[in-house]
């Protein structure tokens, strides 16, 4: 298992390099000029020097190499510095945003908590709703609960988040006025009232994403339970006189959780990607919103870094899913 994990980790490096190369070469084709916003009175030779200061004068492969060094070598040093108070990264050039001229990672760290709160909370909530529904509707297959449950999960899976989000805003913000339609990211939780406000503004985005995630995961849970419920070992367990609760919740559930856990792990990066839309609907000032504004502003280092972070998440969680699969299911041997 350890060698497998190690081998996968080593394999992840060329994958990540390739992905960063794809993103980088795609962005190289960008028609926009980062100097477009500079006033026309600035003479062309000054503009040329500004361009060089952004690192645009260098050949493409040097630019790519510089970005790699900055992202994989300088940024970790900055992280170590900020944790331990050392000065490894002093004087080294970091990945700078063209929009704000500040380090990209600093902005990412500022935006991360909003995304993590909304996305993380909704994913946890979605999983917590999905599992019991999936288990029960598989146990009582074709019952009224199962029929309604599968229909609702099909609807939740088909209705796009940008529609459910807007619908919730129309109902609960415009007509009823219960919840704010815009997520206030400057809000600080200091006492009970402000805590309640935080809850109120989180309800709608979290509910939208949770519904979507719950729909997908409960379908998997149900299918996986159904696969296991007819197996011989279930009959054996019943025949030896175990209670129904033990049979379903211990024997069947533990075996059906194996594929579901990997699906949950694989879904995490997708949720981050899907949150781009939800963040846009509720004006959450998170990573997705940052990506969209930087795409519109032609801020290539920011787009490059953010897209790469999304890719990094996908690769990491794929690895986690594979390792989990091996740990949970003793029948699977990678070596």
């Amino acid at each position: 298992m350890l060698t497998f994990t190690f081998r996968r980790l080593v394999l992840a490096i060329p994958t990540l390099l390739f992905i960063s190369l794809v993103i980088f070469s795609l962005l190289q084709l960008a028609p926009g000029d980062p100097m477009a916003q500079v006033p026309l009175t600035v003479p062309p030779e000054v503009k040329e020097r500004m361009r060089e200061a952004l690192g645009l004068g260098a050949p493409v492969h040097i630019q790519f190499f510089k970005w790699l060094v900055q992202f994989f070598w300088v940024e970790p040093q900055v992280l170590i510095d900020s944790i331990f108070g050392t000065t490894f990264s002093e004087g080294k050039l970091r990945v700078l945003s063209w929009q704000t001229r500040s380090p990209v990672m600093d902005i990412v760290v500022q935006r991360l908590p909003q995304t993590l709160w909304v996305v993380g909370m909704s994913y946890v909530l979605g999983v917590m709703i999905a599992l019991p529904i999936g288990i029960y509707s598989a146990y009582r297959q074709y019952s009224a609960f199962d029929q309604i449950g599968t229909f609702v999960s099909m609807v939740g899976f088909s209705v796009p988040t940008f529609f459910t989000g807007v619908l919730l805003i129309v109902i609960f913000s415009v007509n009823l006025g219960w919840f704010p339609s815009i997520y206030d990211t400057t809000h600080k939780v200091s006492d009970w009232d402000s805590f309640m406000f935080q809850i109120r503004q989180m309800i709608m985005p979290v509910a939208v994403l949770a519904l979507y995630n719950a729909a997908q995961i409960s379908r998997f849970m149900r299918a996986s339970m159904l696969d296991n419920l007819n197996q011989d070992y279930v009959r054996t367990a019943r025949a030896k006189g175990l209670g129904e609760k033990t049979v379903v919740l211990v024997h069947v559930l533990r075996n059906s959780m194996i594929p579901v856990v990997t699906v949950i792990a694989l879904g995490v990066p997708q949720v981050f990607g899907g949150a781009i839309i939800t963040e846009q609907v509720f004006k959450v000032n998170g990573l997705g919103q940052l990506l969209i504004t930087s795409i519109e502003a032609n801020d290539l280092p920011m787009v490059q870094t953010l897209t790469f972070i999304f890719a990094l998440l996908i690769v990491i969680f794929n690895l986690i899913a594979d390792v989990l699969y091996g740990i949970l299911d003793p029948r699977i041997r990678y070596d």
Binding site: I23, G273, I276, I277, T307, F310
Partner: peptide, 8 residues
């Protein structure tokens, strides 16, 4: 499959 599709 490892590419972040929506951002791309």
């Amino acid at each position: 499959l490892a590419l972040p599709l929506l951002p791309l």
